[in-house]
Design a protein around this nucleic acid. Structure first.
Length: 635
RNA sequence: GCCGGCGUAGCUCAGUGGUAGAGCAGCGCACUCGUAAUGCGCAGGCCGUCGGUUCAAAUCCGACCGUCGGCUCCA
């Protein structure tokens, strides 16, 4: 007999050779039905696996991340099977589970479009009905290579060749279909219930644009139809929060054919921008930053000196003035550096923190443009900190705290990534090593958890990135801190030390919002357009019930405007219901309904966009509360 | 840039080879109304652009532009 220790610590005894599925059934038939995969001594294993020795076993269902991934990975296999049934000769690349579903990359002469997706979905449902067991087969490298070579599955052959020497090579079979796969999988195709194929997209083999473009089909899967419907409904809801849709509805900004990737800010969008900038200026002044502004067009020679010409040219726009070559700035740093160099600096002056709301232009590929999130011109809330080497860590910690304080005001969750030396980098390995360690130490001092992206740094230095989420869970880089030992070298920056000698300062590039445009996009989706009152383009809408109250309504509107409250009067000859509906649609925080009673008593009937009717109060009282809410930046 | 989808009125969409349609928004008139849509009327379109097929093109074909979802890149 073997001893099986379960998650709760209890021990059960079974014959050697008992399968995990049998054990699950023995514990409860319900568990056998819900379990998708098991963790045996810390490793994920198929439920069809038989145990010969004592083991610690945990059964995983769709409620766990691992369970979901296995479920969806198995669904990807079924999709591949369906595709090969319908379109013989289709070659398979890779097909993993992803955050909310799965994909599989195919190489096929057949162009997949929505019509084919439907057919594939129908075939997948057939395979699920057939309830084919997933069988694991382990085989030698030779056997595996021969098998996939024979079938012409050259992507699989490439994958096998890249597996480490000691890897166990396994295949999974369901019915006539077989795929190279480490597993594990659900016991049989019948476990997969509700499947939906979502879209097709091109994707390069191994993500490298020099390789062939494959067709990637995305889908999602759930163990119950109701869960699938719920998920699709959530996606639908999320689209309602899309900043591009809300931007048009709330009249914040537009993007026109005449300027692809170059957003137009409308009056209401400008109010949000200006409020953000006001907040930004206050906070930066408090923290010892000086504000500067540098030109948008600067000589090409400057960009050659900075290294942008060599490393960033394909993203830049160029122009000519009187036969001399100029570039439109893609970054603000060279401008800042010129200001630093305009006079001599003492070690006593450092750190110098020069902040700039700088408009930069970058040539982004047409296919990546996305509302305000990815554009071709944007305003970075940039700053360059010039400092002594021994000030580096404190300055980085200072920026980390600044970013955290900012994001907290908006109630954002974020995650942090550290990017290290890229292939196309300037400077020696040692300098990079030093810079990267400084960033690490600062994050560790603040106990900030982070993920490492090897090779993702800027060409002049490693960086810490702060990522925020949009309405459908895509993450966007906003804040970033980049350490730079190289620009000071290239531009021969110096300060005079205690001993009268010249020394080299260190430089930090950093942004907090990242790009004001992207940040407004994120804000819009985060609040679903219902901006906190301090940011709301219109804070109060005055709604007289009939034109008898127009004079009083004008008076109230005037008083509010005088007190610096952004107020609009809806003087149209419409029913109050209609006016409320419209103001709600515009997500205006407060509506003041004014009828004969209010006009007589000198009060206002307050309606809040979320809390509804709050009853009548003295106008002065309302203003006090509103001003308190605005100045505290309440969310 | 690459792969696939889409492009008709300000917005949302119908129209698949034979004289361009609806709802909402806009404008006019009436209603004077108490917390999410009052009624009637009027106007509004080189059917993304250019070229081709056809007696005839919003509709079929091609190119380009824009846009959406990805890939790649990045704030």
């Amino acid at each position: 007999m073997i001893n099986i220790t379960l998650k709760d610590g209890s021990v059960r005894r079974y014959e050697p050779g008992t399968s995990l599925l049998e054990i699950a059934f023995d514990i409860s038939p319900r568990l056998a039905k819900d379990a998708l995969v098991a963790r045996v001594n810390g490793k994920l294993v198929d439920l069809n696996h038989r145990l010969d020795e004592d083991a610690k076993v945990e059964f995983l269902t769709f409620d766990s991340e691992e369970g979901r991934d296995v479920f969806r990975h198995s669904t990807a296999h079924v999709m591949a099977q369906a595709v090969q049934r319908l379109f013989p000769g289709t070659k398979l690349a890779i097909g993993p589970a992803i955050a909310n579903g799965f994909y599989y990359d195919f190489d096929s002469p057949q162009r997949f479009n929505p019509e084919q997706l439907e057919a594939i979905e129908v075939e997948m449902n057939k395979i699920i009905k057939e309830d084919l067991p997933f069988a694991r087969v382990e085989l030698s490298r030779e056997e595996a290579l021969n098998k996939f070579r024979e079938r012409g599955e050259h992507y699989k052959v490439e994958l096998i060749n890249d597996l480490p020497e000691d890897a166990v090579i396994s295949c999974y079979q369901q019915g006539e279909f077989e795929d190279l796969c480490a597993g594990p999988h659900v016991p049989s195709t019948g476990r997969l219930k509700a499947v939906k194929l979502l879209n097709v997209a091109g994707a390069y083999w191994r993500g490298d644009e020099r390789n062939k473009m494959l067709q990637r089909i995305y889908g999602t899967a759930f163990p119950k139809k109701s869960l699938l419907d719920e998920h699709l409904h959530r996606l639908e809801e999320a689209r309602r929060r899309d900043h591009r849709k809300l931007g048009a509805e709330l009249d914040l900004f537009s993007i026109q054919e005449e300027g692809p990737g170059f957003p137009f800010f409308h009056p209401k969008g400008m109010i949000i921008r200006n409020e953000l900038e006001k907040f930004w200026r206050e906070e930066h002044k408090r923290r010892g930053y000086d504000e500067i502004r540098t030109p948008v067009i600067l000589s090409r020679a400057l960009w050659e000196q900075s290294g942008h010409w060599d490393h960033y040219r394909e993203n830049m726009y160029f122009t000519k003035i009187d036969d001399a070559d100029f570039a439109i700035k893609p970054m603000n740093c060279p401008g800042s550096i010129l200001i630093y160099k305009s006079r001599l600096h003492s070690y006593r002056d450092l750190p110098i923190r020069m902040a700039e709301l700088g408009l930069v232009h970058r040539h982004e590929l047409s296919g990546v443009l996305h509302g305000l999130m990815r554009v071709r011109c944007f305003t970075q809330d940039d700053a360059h900190i010039f400092m002594l080497p021994e000030q580096v860590k404190d300055e980085i910690v200072g920026v980390i705290d600044l970013v955290n304080d900012f994001y907290r005001v908006f109630g954002f969750d974020y995650h942090v990534e550290l990017s290290t030396r890229p292939e196309k980098a300037m400077g020696s390995e040692e300098i990079w090593e030093m810079a990267t360690n400084a960033l690490r130490e600062a994050m560790e001092e603040r106990g900030l958890p982070y993920k490492v992206n090897e090779g993702d740094g800027a060409f002049y230095g490693p960086k810490i990135d702060f990522h925020l989420e949009d309405c459908i869970g895509r993450t966007w880089q906003c804040g970033t801190i980049q350490l730079d030992f190289l620009m000071p070298e290239k531009f021969d920056l110096t300060y005079v030390g205690e001993d009268g000698q010249k020394y080299r300062p260190v430089m930090i590039h950093r942004v907090v919002f990242g790009s004001i445009e992207r940040f407004i996009g994120i804000l819009t989706e985060h609040f679903a357009g219902a901006f906190p009152t301090w940011l709301a383009p219109v804070q109060v809408k005055v709604l007289p019930i009939t034109d008898r109250q127009l004079d009083y309504a004008r008076e109230v509107t005037g008083i509010l405007a005088e007190r610096d409250i952004r107020v609009e009067l809806d003087a149209r000859n419409e029913k109050v219901n209609y006016k409320i509906r419209e103001a709600q649609g515009q997500k205006i925080p407060y509506m003041l309904v004014l009828g004969d009673r209010e006009a007589a008593a000198g009060t206002v009937a307050v309606r809040h966009r979320r809390k509804g009717d709050l009853g009548a109060v003295e106008l002065e009282r309302f203003i006090e509360n509103l001003q308190r809410e605005i100045s505290s930046k309440e969310c």
